[in-house]
Every structure is written in structure tokens, then in C-alpha cells.
Computed example of a mutant assay.
Amino acid sequence: MQRPLRSNRTASGRAAEDTAAAHLQGTGVSVIERNWRCKTGELDLIAKEGDVLVFVEVRSRTAPSRYGTAVEAVTPRKCRQVRETAGVYLKMTGAYGSPVRFDVIAVTFAADGSVAELRHIPGAF
């Protein structure tokens, strides 16, 4: 049984989310939820910029990757799932009707684990 691959993926995902949260906070955006889950899925980061709720999908890759870039990992199917889950969040928190935005933060790690690139795409979908 090979568990190390999963724990490496989990650690890489956590590092990418930490990096993304720090980036957002550095730009004055407040992170209000991390890894919010319900039956439809998970929202990596939920933030607030002024009166706008920002739902952030975080993706990561290690360079070079044979699986494409982190941005390319945000598929139409994933966008639909994030929108649906955001709808559940809005309903459950009573924030339905609030202005919202969907961002992507793509983090590429170098082989040594350092951040090689961070790409923030506001209003990505």
C-alpha cells in the first residue's frame, strides 16, 4: 500500500493554500473560511474584499509537470462544482444576494519546495 504519495499531495495542497491565503492577506483581502465543506464539495478559501465575497479555487503543481499547469487544472466541471458549493454556502450563511467573485490562485512549486510562481486570476469564472 502506497500512502506517501497521498500525504505528499495533501502537504502540497496545504502549502499552496497557505501561500494563497498569505497572498490574499498581503493584498488587503480577508480570508474568512478555509476548506469549507458540504455535501456538494469543498471551497478552498472564502475571502472578503470590501463587500464582495470571494470564492478562491487553489491549484498547485510542481515544475516541471507532465500534467499541465496549475491553471489548466481548473476544468469546466470544477468551476460548476465550486459555483454550486458557493451557492450552498451563501444559502447556509444567509449571504444570498451578496456580491460574489470566483478567483483562481495557481501556485507552482520548484523542486526544492519553494514557490516558483503564484498566479492570481480575479474573476476567473
Rank of each mutant, 00 (worst) to 15 (best):
M92L: 11
G94H: 05
S7R: 05
A116E: 14
T10R: 06
G41I: 03
A124Q: 08
I105V: 13
G26A: 11
R66L: 14
H23A: 09
G68I: 00
R77S: 13
A47V: 08
A124V: 05
P4D: 08
A63E: 08
S60D: 13
V58P: 00
N8T: 12
L43C: 03
G26M: 09
E72D: 12
E72A: 14
R80Q: 12
A111Y: 10
V71I: 08
P76H: 10
M92K: 14
C38A: 06
G97Q: 11
T27V: 14
G87D: 04
A95K: 15
L53K: 04
R59Q: 14
R80M: 07
A110H: 02
V31C: 06
I46K: 00
T62E: 14
A47F: 02
K39R: 14
V56H: 01
E84W: 02
G13E: 08
K78W: 08
T10K: 04
V104T: 11
E17L: 08
S30E: 15
A63V: 15
V104L: 15
Q2Y: 08
V107H: 06
A15T: 06
P76L: 11
E57L: 12
E17I: 09
T108S: 11
R101K: 07
A95R: 15
G97V: 09
N35C: 02
A63N: 07
A116S: 14
V58S: 01
S65P: 05
C38V: 07
S12M: 11
